[in-house]
Design a binder for these strands. Structure first.
Length: 296
DNA sequence: GGAAGTCAAGTCTCG
DNA sequence: CGAGACTTGACTTCC
């Protein structure tokens, strides 16, 4: 079981999400910013390894405008050696990586340019993981996009478009239950039709479900992960008591996490803490996990 | 240095 | 019909 947090380490004082305005796009600008982002990435990965947080989500902003139509700069060639070095460090330390493209990736969109942009964006994410030389257990998680007024039709389009993706992309893609369009049951049914693994999100499941418990939803999602996909990944969060339904908590609810871990009864999953205070919650969770392991 | 406005991109819900 | 929400604020301008 590996624990981690997404993208930014709040205590470290660096970020791998530096960007710039599209109007300023040039080779020099891009290379300078990407250099900063890669340095920050390496520093963050090192910190994570030192703290035994071996699950980490890399920023989609690592290479700004990477999938933009006007992008004709060969960043892949330029940064291949750096990414290979960082990837080797990741592999040497048995770290696992995920990525999560933004809401602009909607492969089932009825708008052809949205679809084309989505494929380019997914290709960019796959390129990063390929250049890190990580195998297909390192995943790209995304959602079913909008339903566009026709839920069944949009799922049909999703299956077709998913099947048409290159192996390089498809072998890394996993679908995450969301709080509006696709419950874990609906993701599970998509998985039965096209084989995509289902990444379970605990908070989304609390907001949208079909009556299953967290554990039942988790089991359903876990059953979709085959050998080549590695140990099932999940996103773990708590409801923010002061904000709208579905808003992520500022801090982890330690007791709730303890009872969740106990309920797992030894099931092996990798857990990403989507909690606002980032690495602080992941470290607290680690202490909980060590305590539970001593008991069992 | 800090506050406010802006930034590639989609889709839906709410007020 | 515009704002706000989403895995994630960062950059730029203005004072």
């Amino acid at each position: 079981m590996k624990l981690g947090y997404p993208v930014i380490n709040l205590g470290l004082g660096v970020t791998s999400s530096h960007t710039f305005r599209l109007a300023l796009l040039s080779e020099e600008k891009l290379f300078n910013i990407v250099r900063k982002n890669l340095d920050a990435l390496e520093e963050t990965v090192r910190w994570n390894i030192e703290h035994n947080l071996l699950f980490y989500r890399i920023s989609s902003n690592l290479i700004p405008f990477a999938s933009h139509l006007n992008m004709d700069i060969a960043w892949q060639t330029k940064f291949a050696p750096d990414l290979a070095r960082i990837g080797q460090y990741i592999k040497d330390n048995h770290m696992r990586i995920s990525m999560h493209p933004g809401q602009f990736v909607v492969i089932n969109s009825p708008n052809g340019s949205v679809y084309a942009n989505s494929v380019r964006e997914l290709q960019y994410h796959a390129d990063i993981l390929d250049l890190l030389q990580l195998d297909s257990t390192h995943k790209i998680q995304f959602h079913l996009g909008g339903l566009h007024g026709d839920a069944e039709g949009s799922r049909e389009v999703f299956i077709q478009r998913y099947n048409a993706l290159s192996d390089a992309i498809r072998s890394r893609l996993v679908i995450e239950n969301d709080e509006r369009f696709a419950s874990v049951q609906e993701c599970f049914e998509l998985s039965k039709r096209c084989g995509i693994p289902v990444l379970f999100d605990t908070l989304h499941h609390e907001v949208k479900n079909d009556g299953e418990t967290i554990l039942a939803g988790l089991k359903k999602a876990m059953s979709t992960w085959g050998e080549t996909n590695g140990i099932p990944m999940i996103d773990y969060s708590n409801q923010n008591p002061y904000k709208r339904v579905g808003a992520h908590a500022e801090t982890i609810d330690v007791e709730k996490f303890r009872s969740f871990v106990r309920s797992l009864k030894g099931k092996d999953i990798d857990i990403m803490f989507e909690i606002k205070n980032k690495e602080a919650s992941a470290l607290q969770a680690q202490i909980v996990l060590e305590g539970v392991r001593k008991i069992f």
